[in-house]
């Protein structure tokens, strides 16, 4: 798990540059959610997906 203090600092900075209204009392929760999301993103890196695989933004079978 990422360092909570680092996550809060990152979240504060991103909120500022992206103009997202993160109030100080919301910061720990938003930072925790972001940490969860990035941890889940790590699991994607463990799977090899070929360079030629097309993304499926609108997905059809």
């Amino acid at each position: 798990m990422r360092n909570p203090e680092a996550m809060e600092a990152l979240t504060r900075a991103l909120a500022d540059v992206l103009r997202l209204p993160v109030k100080p009392e919301w910061l720990p929760s938003v930072a925790q959610q972001l940490a969860i999301t990035l941890a889940l993103a790590d699991s994607l890196e463990a799977v090899e997906v070929g360079d030629e695989t097309s993304a499926a933004p609108v997905y059809r079978l």
């Binding site: 993160v22 938003v30 993103a41």
Partner: peptide, 26 residues
Amino acid sequence: RDRLLSGAMVPAQVVTRAQKFRAHFR
């Protein structure tokens, strides 16, 4: 709110990887 705010901060490469993985998993 907190989930959506955090979602607005996720790097684009993560989203593209998730989309590409979808084709693989399908």
